[in-house]
Design a binder for these strands. Structure first.
Lengths: 338, 338
DNA sequence: GTAATAGTGTCTTTCAGACAGTATGAC
DNA sequence: GTCATACTGTCTGAAAGACACTATTAC
């Protein structure tokens, strides 16, 4: 790596760079979170809407993303937020090989975005909106701890951690051992499962060679697991990693910003609201506490109308925009269980 | 990246794109936060360490940034985190003019980073480490509400908000009015000052034409304030915006991650810890509550040693690494005042 | 009535915020 | 002693978390 010591003059960059914009478009179908993802054909993995940023076509990065969403998913996005910029070399294995031989294949840096939208459950569109948890089955704790974790993930990760137990003892004290990381991220032993650490869990599984990232460099892929189970569906390129980032982000954000209402219809029942929040945060909530939080927190107000859907009619509510000006961080300071 | 049906083929991007990496390197000098920023000469505004990402030289984006920090600030960074990717067209006004005539001047997208480091207060280096609050004097509430806000900022923003009072009433109900935004971001009238909203405040001031962003497009610059006061020092390019992002991020992160210890020496007194946290978060803390939080939260442990610096000797503490594995979000759940 | 869904009342534990005090050193 | 800094004990009120109970509809 040539060091131009403190000189502010840099040689022109010798490979072309391409900026890829990729969007996670999240919606709810009933109580289940879904994302827009299309597969080229029945064989290939689904991919998120994406495309190259072109400063001549797109006035800003975000407008570029909105443009791709409109073209590919046929959706006009409302809420959009930038997540993270992924730039690891080897993002596309094929490109990498070429690039290292000095060709001019562009290096790709991708910027991930999260968009929230309301989608009418058109039956035709359903195939294009797979369930979010089909990609991360270990993240759905609404029916209690997923069996997948106890039956597959933890046993395999224990083997993976045992491999390094010896080194860990002598190693750098600043870094956590593999065993500690597994315990921290997947809970168990009275340790809580922190639903926000979606990306960290995904990266641990990737590091252990238990999930595939299509076309990524095969650093760890050689570590063969003869009886490796299918841990969720994979996606094109690094889209599954971007999706993990999105899920972690929105789970965190629910707690201090009223983003959930971007996904709710204009009026809704509190039970519906609770179920959708549970769908995203991935665990059950205590009903009474949820209602208290949401009502006494001034997040919603009754419309006066009611639904009738089988049992006792439910009161309809709407989002109270005024909270935005009343409280610094209006969110659903959600606790656990219920 | 060719895609399924919707918009399969994208034309090759016709302008070259350059990715700029820019780092905010934050340290403490005593109780005061400082950043690395160098000016070319006495006349020009200071700038953060930065440079173009070159995939042939830098294995990852972050390594590229570390490289520029080493070259320009002569610092080997420890903790580094990505902040945000800024891509507005017109990031460099001069470039923009050329690019719109179809020339091949690159469009610049910049990725901001935050790094935390310990710096020995070498007197020689001091000039290169200006105080953080010299760029955002309205963010330092340690001595109470800054007079600048009451004497300059709020009166000017009130004028700016009054300009739009009429439109606001009729306008889109989803958007907050100027008056509401001012009240929300700068507090007053029994509204709290939310110290995390650093970027939002900066952007409001920028929108109102009260702060300069060197070389940015002059959309709002025409709005002349005849008696405009100096609201903090400006920086090169969009560096001040990146700095605002960094300050907002670390103020938020302090509360749920033990990042402060990246800046602390290996052992420290609780008073010193409190003062440094106050320096970053920008307001005073209640002493007893702070100590209770930090000790009962298991964030620190006594070393058994003591200092003697004038008064009663203070017990020395060190960071307890074990919290990382004990609690999901170990931070200083700081309250207000003191 | 029974099943199904909606909604409430209140207790306990935890913890943030604030009070006012005591302890140990240099001089 | 006085000044300066370090440290502690305890009250209060707001919520988070959990308990069990009542209400209104369709059939």
């Amino acid at each position: 790596m040539p060091d131009a010591q403190a000189s502010p003059i840099h040689k022109p960059v010798s490979t072309t760079i391409e900026i890829n914009l990729t969007g996670v478009i999240l919606a709810m179908q009933g109580d289940h979170p879904v994302i827009y993802a299309a597969a080229r054909d029945a064989q290939s993995s689904p991919g998120l809407p994406s495309g190259p940023f072109d400063p001549l076509r797109h006035r800003t990065l975000e407008l570029g993303l909105r443009n791709f969403a409109a073209e590919q998913a046929k959706l006009t996005l409302g809420y959009v937020e930038q997540l993270y910029t992924f730039g690891d070399r080897g993002r596309h294995a094929a490109e990498r090989a070429l690039a290292e031989e000095g060709s001019l294949v562009p290096h790709v840096v991708s910027i991930g975005y999260l968009a929230l939208t309301r989608v009418e459950a058109g039956a035709a569109a359903r195939a294009q909106f797979p369930g979010l948890y089909s990609f991360f089955p270990w993240e759905d704790w609404r029916k209690g701890p997923p069996k997948l974790i106890d039956q597959s993930i933890r046993p395999l990760l224990d083997i993976w951690a045992a491999d390094h137990a010896a080194e860990a003892a002598s190693a750098d004290r600043r870094a956590l051992s593999r065993r500690e990381r597994v315990a921290l991220l997947f809970g168990g032993d009275n340790r809580p499962f922190d639903e926000e650490k979606v990306l960290e869990r995904y990266e641990l599984l990737y590091e252990a060679g238990l999930v595939d990232e299509a076309l990524r460099d095969g650093r760890e892929a050689a570590k063969a697991w003869p009886e490796r189970p299918a841990l969720g569906r994979s996606m094109q390129a690094d889209h599954r990693r971007i999706l993990a980032t999105a899920l972690g982000r929105i789970r965190a954000k629910l707690k201090y910003r009223p983003v959930i209402f971007e996904i709710m219809p204009p009026t809704f029942t509190l039970t519906d609201l609770q179920h959708k929040v549970e769908g995203i945060s991935g665990h059950h909530l205590h009903k009474q506490n949820f209602r208290r939080l949401v009502e006494s927190g001034g997040l919603v107000e009754a419309t006066g109308e009611q639904t009738n859907t089988g049992g006792r009619p439910a009161a309809l509510f709407r989002f109270r925009r005024e909270v935005l000006t009343e409280r610094p961080a209006p969110g659903l300071r959600l606790g656990r269980s219920g």
